[in-house]
Simulated assay, not measured.
Amino acid sequence: MPDPIDDAKRALRAELRERRQLLTDAARKDAAAGIAAQLEALVDQVGAHAVSCYLSTRAEPETRPFLNAAVARGIRVLLPITRVDGLLDWVVADPDADVTEGVLGIPEPVGELLGPIAVNDVDLMIIPAAAVDRSGMRLGWGRGYFDKTIGSIQGCPPVYAVIFDSELLDEVPSDVHDQPVTGVVTPTRTITLAPEGR
């Protein structure tokens, strides 16, 4: 039986994926610099000593300049490792560590696995998204890893999704298991959307 919410999510993800593929290398480079500056300012604003982030794919807003700068500043950065059971494991970011292809075919670091609950100790979560709406509802890429993680953390820290400017929408389709985010980080701004939603 067709699910209208799933169908709407699939259609929107396809449109967003296509838009991202059309970005020029120059636009991606500019976006990477903006994302790094916005994330560094957010870390300072939150006063975070430990954060979770992720290794971006080529289609995503670039996170590596921020990751390298954060580690150089002495901030503990945890990076996710996908598991076959649908949970995320975590490793400490090391700019010199090898990168391999994870369960979903996305880049993941090689390192000592800390276990799914390691993320409970971060002061700020930085996560990927396809889009976010103005109420803070996030549209992910359909696997549910981050929704499960966010939903399982007691006293969850602020959660910010990294997106391109055009991906902050008026509304995204959502289901009961979808988790809102505190705000978004784009190449040009950081916006708090749902401070009470976390």
Rank of each mutant, 00 (worst) to 15 (best):
E15T: 14
E15S: 14
E15V: 13
L16T: 10
E18H: 13
E18T: 12
R19T: 05
R20N: 08
L23Q: 14
T24K: 06
T24Y: 05
D25R: 14
A26Q: 15
R28H: 10
R28W: 07
R28C: 10
K29M: 11
K29W: 11
D30C: 09
D30A: 13
A32G: 04
I35S: 06
I35P: 03
I35H: 00
A37D: 13
A37V: 10
A37G: 04
L39S: 12
L39H: 09
L39F: 02
A41R: 13
A41N: 09
A41I: 06
A41G: 11
L42Q: 09
L42A: 03
L42G: 07
V43D: 03
D44M: 12
D44C: 09
Q45R: 15
Q45I: 02
V46Y: 10
V46K: 08
V46C: 04
G47Y: 03
G47K: 08
A48T: 00
A48D: 07
A48R: 06
V51R: 11
V51L: 15
V51P: 07
S52T: 10
S56F: 06
R58K: 12
A59H: 08
A59I: 00
A59R: 11
P61V: 03
P61D: 06
E62Q: 13
E62I: 09
R64G: 09
R64Y: 10
P65N: 04
P65A: 03
P65M: 04
L67N: 06
L67G: 01
L67I: 00
A69H: 01
A69R: 13
A69W: 08
A70W: 06
V71D: 05
V71W: 03
A72C: 00
A72E: 12
G74F: 01
I75Y: 04
V77S: 05
V77E: 02
L78Y: 02
L78K: 06
L79T: 05
P80D: 05
P80I: 07
P80C: 08
P80W: 03
I81Q: 09
I81M: 10
T82I: 09
T82F: 11
T82N: 09
T82R: 03
R83A: 06
